[in-house]
Nucleic acid binder design. Structure first.
Length: 318
DNA sequence: AATGACCCCAACCGCTATCCT
DNA sequence: AAGGATAGCGGTTGGGGTCAT
């Protein structure tokens, strides 16, 4: 299931993502957001095209993604939405928080579509053999076909008791009570949960801190044997005029974002410094509220909804 | 145990929509 | 208004995993 890594003509990597690449992408996007997917790989130190980075982030790395099997409820929802929307996977995915369009599309083509077709075939057979008006539907609760006999040509979806789970889902959806499907405060749990303690990011944070402690020591230069580079011959176009050798190595490994200030306010939107900015004076530790105020004119952490995030993020550095 | 067919899904490709200058 | 850049979408591919023979 894993594609063999290769390079295209321009030297950009293709194929399966390595843990190192994931680390770089996670570290960059969580700190600076997806401000420009095309430019992002350069800053993040990735030898990938922006499109590939976007896809990897959207379909695999971004927080709050559900992994694992689809629930019966989700399957029922997909079936219903597909009957209404067709192959508009992104629209369907929008109704299923935590699921990506790609994931839904794959699941449809590999599982649900077959089930659907099988049911239709059985439906046709049953229609031929029975004079009564009969409809067949996919049961959301099992991989079985359910037959309902009706005297009315009303929509089988709405009339079928087999779709009670859909109905309940709709109701809860409309009432903003989607249980684990609703985006609430807990959706930021990745900040202090497994997301931030993933080995990838945890290592990055640790390494960053190490370099900061004794920036001029050669012992703090990353060992290339320890950390693989996506493309060792790659010439990153990074401004490094003020970097010490160790900082430059760090920058080369992970991109210039590591010597730029941490700024979670820009989580999903904007970068906080441009490529040409001299950021050598900026501290490695998360800056204070005063620093944010100076930099952006306001303190993004002053609101109740974000202060706890800042505290949690700070704790990662200590 | 070997092998081939099929399954699953991450990733790619090409196209369109939208944004920006 | 035009044209380029970028984001997003949906179809398709490729290869490891699984299962049947």
């Amino acid at each position: 299931m894993v594609r063999t890594p290769s390079c295209d003509k321009s030297g950009l990597r293709k194929g399966t993502w390595t843990p190192e690449e994931d680390r770089k992408l996670i570290a960059y996007v969580t700190r600076y957001g997806s401000w420009n997917w095309r430019q992002l790989p350069k800053f993040a130190g990735l030898a990938r095209c922006g499109k590939s980075c976007r896809l990897r982030w959207m379909n695999y790395l971004r927080p709050n993604l559900k992994r694992g099997n689809f629930t019966q409820e989700e399957e029922a929802c997909i079936i219903k939405l597909h009957s209404k929307l067709g192959n508009r996977w992104s629209a369907i995915a929008a109704e299923l928080p935590g699921r990506t369009d790609n994931e839904i599309k794959n699941h449809w083509h590999t599982t649900l579509k077959k089930r659907f077709q099988t049911n239709e075939e059985e439906s046709e057979t049953a229609t031929k053999s029975k004079p009564k008006e009969t409809t067949h539907q996919i049961s959301a609760e099992s991989n079985t076909t359910t037959t309902t006999t009706t005297t009315s040509p009303l929509s089988p979806l709405s009339s079928s008791s087999e779709f009670s789970s859909i109905t309940s889902w709709d109701q809860s959806h409309n009432n903003n009570n989607k249980n684990n499907m609703v985006l609430e405060d807990d959706d930021f749990a990745f900040l202090d949960g497994s997301f931030w303690t993933e080995p990838y990011l945890a290592e990055i944070l640790h390494e960053q801190e190490t370099v900061v402690t004794v920036p001029s020591s050669t012992s703090n230069v990353f060992d290339p044997c320890e950390i693989s580079v996506a493309n060792e011959n790659e010439e990153l176009e990074l401004s490094s005029n003020n970097s010490t050798s160790s900082l430059f190595d760090l920058e080369k490994e992970f991109g210039s974002f590591l010597i730029e200030p941490t700024m979670m306010e820009s989580f999903w939107t904007q970068p906080c410094v441009s490529e040409s900015d001299d950021v050598s004076h900026i501290p490695f530790m998360p800056p204070s509220s005063e620093y944010f105020t100076t930099l952006c004119g306001s303190d993004p952490w002053s609101t109740p909804s974000t202060t706890h995030l800042y505290d949690q993020h700070l704790s990662l550095f200590h």
